Amino acid sequence: MAQLVIYSENIANFIVIALGVALYYVRYINGQKLILNPAILVLLISSLTLGRTAIVASLLLLGIVIYFKYKWNFKYFLLLILIFMFYSDRVINSILTIIQNLGSKFGERTSFAEDVRYTIWADYMEKIDLTRLLLGFNEAETHYFMGFTNPHNSFLSGHYTLGFFMIVIIMLIIYILIKLSIYRHSFIALLLVVLLVRSSTDMVIFTGNFDFIYISILLYGYFLMKGELKLE
């Protein structure tokens, strides 16, 4: 059994986002009403941890819930917000200041886009040869990517262990996403996208912890395509 260790704010915000996705997934397949409170709480906690990808994923989750909750009324809701912001310089300046502070982690980074992860990923890709592409990396040895043993990407860490089979898993995920959209279950597909977006900058899925969430969504999509499931 995998042991969950919360060793950074990034892991903490992933747990909150994963649980938020799971909650909305369960409510949706059970035909329950969508509520905004969990998505707002997820965004608040993600903002407090100052995790950039977490904030993006949380905003995406909140936007998805608002859209599917209000549907066509969403455009009027958005219009009111835009009108309010247009006539309020103080609101606009406050929002810009918040974005700048969060993006720079209150001065710890020079910009929102600055991230050592990009060089880690590039180094990882440079170290891949044909053997590693097919079989992954030898876990009996210690491999460093720009000085880090953690590639800070769930997909790369999955490939590190599983090799080519990880590529198959990614192709399966893309296939299920497309099929869920075709079968008019784009809400579930978008929930999976939220989870994948958050997983793109940390080793948080394909590790045993919280994998049940994306696996459950994939299985739902599979059985839905087989005609063995019907959403009431």
Rank of each mutant, 00 (worst) to 15 (best):
R117L: 08
S216Q: 02
G31I: 06
F165I: 10
A2W: 07
S8Q: 06
N10R: 11
Y7A: 14
R198W: 04
I66K: 12
I55A: 03
Y70K: 08
S111A: 12
G31P: 07
L190A: 04
I128L: 11
T161V: 14
S200Q: 07
N37E: 13
L177M: 02
A122P: 04
F137M: 13
Y67R: 09
M171G: 07
K230P: 00
Y24L: 05
L133T: 11
Q32A: 03
L218M: 05
K33M: 05
L34F: 06
I98E: 14
L219W: 05
L59D: 09
V5L: 14
H152K: 12
Y25F: 12
G63M: 10
A140K: 13
E114C: 07
M125N: 05
L130A: 08
I81Y: 13
K71F: 02
I215A: 07
G20M: 06
S94R: 13
L79Y: 11
I64H: 06
D211I: 08
Q32P: 02
D211P: 00
A39E: 04
A12L: 12
T110L: 14
Y25V: 00
L79Q: 10
E126K: 01
Y175E: 09
I205Y: 01
E232F: 11
M1Y: 09
K71Q: 09
N138H: 11
L180T: 01
F137V: 14
N138M: 14
N138P: 15
I169L: 10
V194F: 00
Q100V: 14
L62A: 13
V204H: 03
D202A: 12
D89Q: 13
N93M: 13
I15N: 07
F187R: 00
I170K: 01
V197P: 03
S8D: 07
T97E: 15
V42T: 09
R184Y: 06
F86I: 15
F164V: 13
S111H: 09
K33F: 02
G51V: 04
N73D: 11
S157N: 14
I215N: 05
F68Q: 04
L60M: 15
L34T: 03
M203G: 00
I15V: 14
Q3C: 09
H152I: 09
S46A: 15
Y67M: 12
F68R: 05
